[in-house]
Amino acid sequence: MRAQSFAAVALLIAVAGCAGNQGSQPQTGDTRFVAGDGKITLFEAADRKVAPQVQGETLDGGTASLAAHKGKIVVLNFWASWCAPCRAEAPVLKDISAKTKADGVEFLGIDFKDRKADALAFERSHQSGYPSIFDQPGKVALSFQGTVPPAAIPSTLIIDRQGRIAARALGAVKYTDLLAAVTKVGDER
């Protein structure tokens, strides 16, 4: 009987933890977040949706927006310090950002549902070379609902020169796949 009571209390605590504060760091077994395989889906030009307005305070205290990169290819990456696949793909994003910058490709991170101190530590460790908007409440992520599930992390979008969503990857991206997709969208005129 005592073991059943303990199990019931443990279950209640686990359920309460998952349904708790949405802004908190996810706990082990948290099902609010959606995993992906990192496969990049390219959208035909006629099927592309205009990206929503994205702007906000960056982790370093500045500001960033999609509008500031009008006419350029922009790679948006949704990440968080607590996300293991985000840590795994960070070197890929850093390398491709550096490799494509001369071609006019801009990278912008969206730090999602994170603690600022943890996100800053992640940035210091990975030195991405591009800014990240601090999106603790998840408002930027929600603005992409319909294209990216709000709980899919990491996620990467490629925005074309017309400000439309040209490609999407749910999950950690692979180097050759992301570079090929960025190059293909960049070659469009």
Rank of each mutant, 00 (worst) to 15 (best):
A67N: 14
A68L: 08
A68P: 10
A68N: 14
H69E: 15
H69P: 00
H69V: 01
K70A: 15
G71S: 12
V74E: 10
V74I: 12
V75D: 10
V75W: 10
L76F: 10
F78W: 12
F78L: 13
F78V: 14
W79C: 06
W79E: 09
W79P: 11
S81T: 08
S81A: 15
W82N: 10
W82Y: 12
W82V: 11
W82G: 08
W82E: 12
A84G: 14
P85Y: 09
P85R: 13
C86K: 01
R87E: 08
R87Y: 06
R87Q: 14
A88E: 13
E89F: 10
A90L: 06
A90P: 05
A90T: 05
P91A: 06
P91D: 08
V92G: 12
L93E: 06
K94E: 11
K94I: 02
K94L: 05
D95Y: 03
S97P: 02
S97G: 15
A98K: 15
T100P: 06
T100Y: 12
K101I: 09
K101E: 13
K101G: 11
A102L: 07
A102W: 11
F107K: 05
L108E: 07
G109K: 01
G109L: 07
G109Q: 03
I110E: 04
I110T: 04
D111M: 00
D111G: 02
F112V: 03
F112Q: 04
K113I: 09
D114N: 03
R115C: 00
K116T: 01
K116M: 08
K116N: 01
K116I: 08
K116D: 03
A117D: 15
A117T: 11
D118T: 01
D118V: 00
D118Y: 03
D118K: 05
L120K: 08
F122Q: 00
F122E: 00
E123W: 00
R124L: 03
S125M: 07
H126D: 04
H126Q: 13
H126C: 02
H126V: 04
S128G: 06
S128V: 00
S128F: 13
Y130G: 00
Y130M: 02
S132A: 11
F134Q: 01
F134C: 01
D135L: 06
D135K: 07
Q136S: 08
Q136F: 01
P137E: 08
P137C: 06
P137N: 09
P137S: 09
G138V: 10
K139C: 00
K139E: 12
A141N: 03
A141G: 13
L142I: 00
S143L: 05
S143H: 04
F144D: 02
Q145V: 08
G146W: 02
V148W: 07
P149L: 07
P150D: 05
A151T: 13
A151E: 13
A152T: 13
A152W: 14
I153D: 10
I153V: 15
I153L: 15
I153P: 09
I153Q: 07
I153M: 13
P154K: 06
P154Q: 09
P154E: 12
T156M: 11
T156K: 11
L157T: 06
L157K: 08
L157I: 10
I158W: 05
I159S: 03
R161C: 09
R161D: 11
R161Y: 12
G163I: 09
I165Y: 06
I165A: 02
I165H: 04
I165E: 02
A166E: 03
A166C: 08
A166V: 07
A166G: 03
A167R: 07
A167D: 05
